[in-house]
């Protein structure tokens, strides 16, 4: 199965997780790995799984950095729970790296403010709500 099929039409749950992880790794050297179809999926897919959401966020984070932009708050909402509850070492390190120079605790508060102000897109608000009820703020640095 090619990467698009693995992610867009997975036969099993872990097909997609594996495909997304491969895509994230590919983006280190090959920006074209993120095809328009995959970009649409990664931007719009709604997940409730800490590791799946984290890898979606990490792909979007890398895309933003490759374009010379700062990732949006919604991207950090996808990644934030990995700092608190995620066990996968590679994804956790990716999350730590993504948050370099940025306070997770401040990000948590910013998510609350953004929800209250209705300033996020529907999908980003989904992740903001999910992250704020998943993460224990007291355990964030």
């Amino acid at each position: 199965m090619d990467l698009e099929n693995l992610i867009l039409e997975p036969h099993e749950g872990h097909d997609r997780r594996m495909g997304l992880r491969t895509l994230w790794q590919s983006l280190r050297s090959d920006a074209s790995a993120l095809t328009p179809a995959l970009e649409r999926f990664v931007s719009e897919h709604k997940s409730y799984d800490i590791e799946e959401a984290a890898v979606l966020g990490l792909i979007l984070e890398r895309r933003a950095r490759l374009a010379g932009q700062e990732p949006s708050l919604g991207v950090f909402a996808r990644i934030l729970p990995m700092l608190d509850g995620g066990l996968d070492q590679e994804l956790r390190q990716g999350a730590v790296d993504a948050f370099a120079g940025r306070s997770p605790r401040t990000t948590f508060d910013a998510l609350y403010d953004a929800i209250a102000e209705d300033s996020l897109s529907t999908i980003d608000e989904h992740y903001a709500l999910w992250a704020t009820r998943t993460v224990d703020q007291d355990r964030l640095s």
Binding site: Y112, I115, A116, E125, H126, L129, T132, R133
Partner: peptide, 11 residues
């Protein structure tokens, strides 16, 4: 109130 309504719907 707004936050809790949104969280309830999200859950």
């Amino acid at each position: 109130v707004k936050l809790m309504q949104k969280q309830l719907q999200s859950v």
